[in-house]
Each structure stands twice: as C-alpha cells, then as structure tokens.
C-alpha cells in the first residue's frame, strides 16, 4: 500500500547532493502545486459561481475540518471514536449560547471561549474514556471504548434537550447572528466564506504540522505498536489523552464555524447522526493520507446536495451505498487513490 507516510519519510535523511534536490523538487510539485492551486481556486470561486455554490463550498470546508480533526485521533493515533460530534456540538452550542445568552458578540473572543470550553469537556470525558474503558495496549476490549464514545455524544445531546432555558431544548438554538469581527466589521454570507477559508486553512496547516512533529510521530508509533512505544520510554497514555483533547478542539472549531454558518444548533449536532458524518469522512477519505477527509468532505457535501434534489425522500441511502462501494472498490480510501493518481501525473510531467 502506498501512502503519504512512506512518501514523507523518503524525503529527509538523504546524505545530501543531487538525489535530495531532486526529491525536494518532486515533493514540492507533489504538495505545493495542489495546495496553492486549490487555495487560489477557493479564493476566486465566489466571483464566478452563484451564492448557493459558494455556500456549499463553505460547508465542505467546515466538514473537511471536522473530518480532519477525527483523523488526527483515528488515522494518526489509532483511536477510533463514534462520538466525535460531542465536540462539534459542544463548540457550536458554546458559541451560540455565549452570543445569545451571555451577550458576547465579538467573534474572536467567542471563538476562544468556545474552544476553551470544548477542551475542558474533552479533558473531562477523556478521563473515563481512557482510564476506565481504555483503548490500545492494556485495554480489555476497545469495543467498550467505542460504546463509551457513542454514549458521550448521546449524553450531551440529551443534556442539550433537557437544559431548555440555556439550550432551547429539542428545537435547539436559532438566530445566531453573523459574526462580528470587531472594529464594527460584520461578515455577510459572502464574506463569511473567506473567514471560514482563512480559519480552516490555518487549522489544516496547524494539524499538518502536528502530525509531522515529534508529537505526531509518537502518535503514529502508538498506532502501530503501543507496547513498544512504552518500552521505548513514551508515556502513551498522555499522548492518547492529549490527542483526544486536540482532536476535540479542532472538532469544536468546526462546530463553531457551523453554528455561525447555519445560525442554528440542534441536539442532533451532538449525537450519533453528526458523528456519522465525521466517521464517513474518515472512512471514505482514508486514514492514511492527511488530506483524505478534505476530499471526502467535497464528496459528502456534493452527494448530499444532488441526492437531496433527485432523491428527496431517501437521500441518506446514497451515503450508505457510497460507503459500501468505497470499502469494496477502494478499501484504503479515496485519498490513497487520488494520491497515487497525482504521483503518476507528476511523474509523467517530470
């Protein structure tokens, strides 16, 4: 199987000279061109397409961030979670409640507080998740961990229904205004697109740095062989716990952006039905390629749009069909196939 981890390790460690230069040029064409190209495309797109399409692209970016955040935990740390929406919803609800109930209108302050709140929730949930149920070396059975992650999402969504004065009960929060960026600058639907772009781009860059850092490679090691990691001197519990919180914060960030995007937050945004989206994005996108979930988010939002037009009553069926088809035809995920294709293209050009 070819994936980006093998690709990345090919680049360094060369003793210098021509081979390294050629490799560097190759890795530049492999990564820099698509990254800059897609970035520019997203930037100029709203000038040429109707508003509803740029709104779909906004949603793609938010879901892409959501999928990447789960992949940080799952693809790199090897910790699957069926309850990632717990963080998505917590971030979104926190932002909504702070605007509507606490009157914190500044977007940046709201963002920071919502993310802090999500981190605290993740830290609290992480203790039973890793200490009681456990996943990885020494855990009795990872199924208990998975069931616990489902339970966290359902628990929070029930709480959102029950705490009606704060959360609006089962109808949720609505009427979240357009973000106020300070200095009297308020975004509109079309400028919000750029705000999401900037925040998602920065987050993707941060996550890219994290998975390629010393910390990130420790996570990959834990994924591959946790017992060996402990024998080599790594406190694997701490890595798993902190990656859970990190993934939670990025998931919460996607939730905050989503809350401002739609203006509403409902209990289902905390529950299994939203966790499934992240799950789908990672399965379809590939757990081994960094950008996989971003690709999957494009597919997801695209399918959701067309399916809801042509199959209004049964559109969720399509997702199941796509999932089954992907698992049968591309078990490594779409990301791996796209990467292979792109490598072939660049090799042909060089």
């Amino acid at each position: 199987m070819e994936d980006d981890r093998v690709l990345e390790v090919n680049t360094p460690a060369g003793p210098g000279g021509k081979a390294t230069a050629a490799r560097a040029a190759r890795s530049l064409s492999l990564t820099a061109i698509p990254v800059v190209g897609i970035g520019l495309l997203i930037l100029v797109l709203p000038l040429f397409v109707p508003t509803f399409i740029s709104s779909l692209v906004t949603k793609m970016m938010i879901y892409g961030l959501f999928g990447l955040s789960l992949n940080l935990l799952w693809g790199y740390g090897g910790i699957p979670s069926f309850g990632h929406a717990a963080f998505f919803g917590t971030g979104g609800y926190a932002a909504g409640i702070m605007i509507l109930k606490a009157g914190i209108s500044n977007f940046w302050l709201n963002l920071v507080l919502a993310l802090l709140f999500t981190a605290v929730i993740a830290a609290i949930l992480g203790i039973p998740a890793f200490r009681v149920f456990g996943v990885g070396a020494g855990a009795t059975n990872p199924i208990y961990f998975l069931l616990a992650t489902i339970a966290f999402g359902e628990l929070l969504s029930r709480m959102a229904v029950a705490l009606r004065p704060l959360t609006g009960g089962s109808t949720g929060i609505s009427g979240i205004p357009e973000p106020d960026l300070g200095f009297g600058f308020r975004t509109t639907a079309s400028t919000y697109y750029y705000l999401v772009f900037v925040i998602v781009a920065v987050s993707v860059y941060l996550m890219y740095r994290i998975v390629n850092s010393h910390y990130g490679y420790a996570l990959r090691g834990i994924h591959d062989n946790e017992r060996r990691m402990q024998a080599l001197g790594y406190n694997t519990w701490l890595y798993k716990y902190t990656s859970w919180i990190l993934a939670g914060v990025f998931g919460g960030l996607a939730g905050v952006l989503f809350a401002y995007f739609g203006g509403t937050m409902v209990p289902n945004n905390l529950a299994m039905i939203t966790s499934d989206i992240a799950f789908w994005l990672v399965i379809i996108g590939s757990t081994t390629v960094f950008f996989g979930p971003l690709l999957a988010a494009v597919l997801f939002v695209g399918i959701e749009y067309f399916a809801s037009i042509y199959l209004p009553a049964r559109w969720p069926l399509i997702f199941g069909a796509v999932m089954v088809a992907t698992i049968m035809l591309m078990p490594n995920g779409v990301g791996v196939e796209v990467l292979k294709l792109w490598k072939r293209v660049t090799r042909g050009a060089a």
Binding site: R209, I210, N212, S213, H214, Y215, G216, Y217, A218, L232
Partner: peptide, 19 residues
C-alpha cells in the same frame, strides 16, 4: 528515530518537523 526520541527531550514538541 522514534526509538531515539523516546528518552530525549522534546518528544512532545508540536512545532518542529520530526524528520
């Protein structure tokens, strides 16, 4: 590299490229 990093400082470093 992972084996070497295990007992060295900076194994929680998020900023530098490991490779």
């Amino acid at each position: 590299l992972i084996a070497l990093q295990g007992i060295r400082r900076g194994r929680y470093d998020l900023r530098r490229y490991f490779l």
